[in-house]
């Protein structure tokens, strides 16, 4: 990792990136615990192993930019600054959740952060992100949309339609593929003909594409800095493929037995969180004491989030129909 000079990050900023990555990892651990305790229901897809992507990419955005993502969305929400309390409360189905308990794990929203949602229909978020970028272009605004997707989304028609539309209208949107090599249990090698070079698919839409090590937060950041500048400058959409790996199963219900042990251990050795930590220490960018301090503060934050979620009220029965339509409309 030599990107640091070009990115001119202060020690504090570097430690901030590390804190976010560590927070996501610990948050997901807490989610798994709370799921086992029965506080979190339904589907739970954790982001463990992919933290460098959300943290690196979102750190290059401005507050006015839009973030749109898929159902594996806790990491993106946290990286965008959505409060861990609000997210945990949402997972608990509480009225204080970031989607007021109406969304759940796969549908996190936070208007105050321009966090435009987690979308649980694979590929469905791409057209929406395209429309957000269109609004920006229409009004001559200086904002871009960053749209995350899994490798599975590339098999959906909505991907192809949105890529072409964004390109033909030259919209300020970055399509960011988190290629973790699997869609549920299916290896991308069995479902996507271009699985080894997904980023090259962009060329078919006249969109520039690039690949990056998705387990290297500074590499993701460096590429994004360049891409954001370009897209903000009105040069049209961009496509990024980041190779990464889910360290856990597809969802909490999935032991992921279909993955070869060598593959898993290879990717464990590239785990982005310890990797970044070791780099910070080796480069003298952080001391062990500072790392420990981050650990302690994250632990506190997680405890507070869980307490907040647990002590928050469920939505009121009389509010079942609230927000189906604008207030006053039936």
């Amino acid at each position: 990792m030599t990107a640091i000079d070009r990115q001119r990050l202060s020690k504090n900023q570097l430690l901030g990136l590390y804190r976010q990555m560590h927070l996501i990892r610990e948050f997901e651990r807490e989610c798994e615990r709370q799921y086992t305790r029965g506080h979190i229901k339904g589907f739970l897809h954790v982001y463990s192993g992919e933290e460098a992507i959300a943290v690196g990419a979102i750190s290059t955005l401005e507050p006015q930019d839009y973030v749109v993502t898929h159902y594996r969305d806790h990491g993106h929400a946290l990286a965008r600054g959505v409060s861990s309390k609000d997210i945990m409360a949402e997972l608990f189905g509480k009225a204080t959740g970031c989607s007021k308990g109406r969304g759940g794990s796969m549908h996190l929203f936070d208007a105050s952060k321009n966090f435009m949602g987690g979308y649980a229909i694979v590929g469905g978020q791409l057209p929406v992100a395209t429309g957000l970028a269109l609004a920006s272009q229409y009004r001559g605004e200086n904002r871009i949309a960053l749209c995350f997707m899994g490798d599975g989304a590339l098999n959906e028609g909505e991907f192809h339609e949105a890529m072409n539309l964004a390109a033909i209208w030259k919209l300020p949107v970055i399509f960011f593929c988190e290629n973790n090599l699997y869609g549920m249990g299916a290896p991308a090698s069995t479902t996507l003909i271009m699985h080894q070079e997904i980023y090259r698919m962009a060329a078919a839409y006249g969109i520039p594409g690039a690949e990056v090590d998705g387990n290297d937060v500074l590499a993701v950041r460096e590429l994004m800095l360049e891409v954001v500048q370009r897209v903000r400058g009105g040069q049209g959409p961009y496509f990024i493929e980041a190779k990464t790996y889910r360290l856990r199963g597809h969802s909490i219900a999935d032991p992921a037995n279909y993955r070869p042990p060598e593959e898993v251990s290879y990717w464990q050795s590239r785990d982005p969180v310890p990797r970044f930590k070791e780099w910070l220490l080796a480069e003298g960018q952080a001391s062990q004491a500072e790392i420990d301090q981050v650990g302690a503060s994250v632990e506190q934050e997680i405890v507070a989030a869980a307490q907040f979620a647990e002590s928050s009220p469920f939505p009121q029965p009389q509010d079942l129909h609230k927000w189906v339509y604008e207030e006053g409309q039936a």
Partner: peptide, 28 residues
């Protein structure tokens, strides 16, 4: 052409783009 946008044959993309633009405060 900015306000009467001829689109590709992409029903999903244009409705979805309408959803996004509407979320952003426009009236597609």
């Amino acid at each position: 052409p900015e306000r009467v946008k001829d689109s590709p044959l992409s029903e999903s993309a244009i409705v979805g783009a309408g959803v996004g633009a509407a979320m952003a405060g426009l009236r597609p």
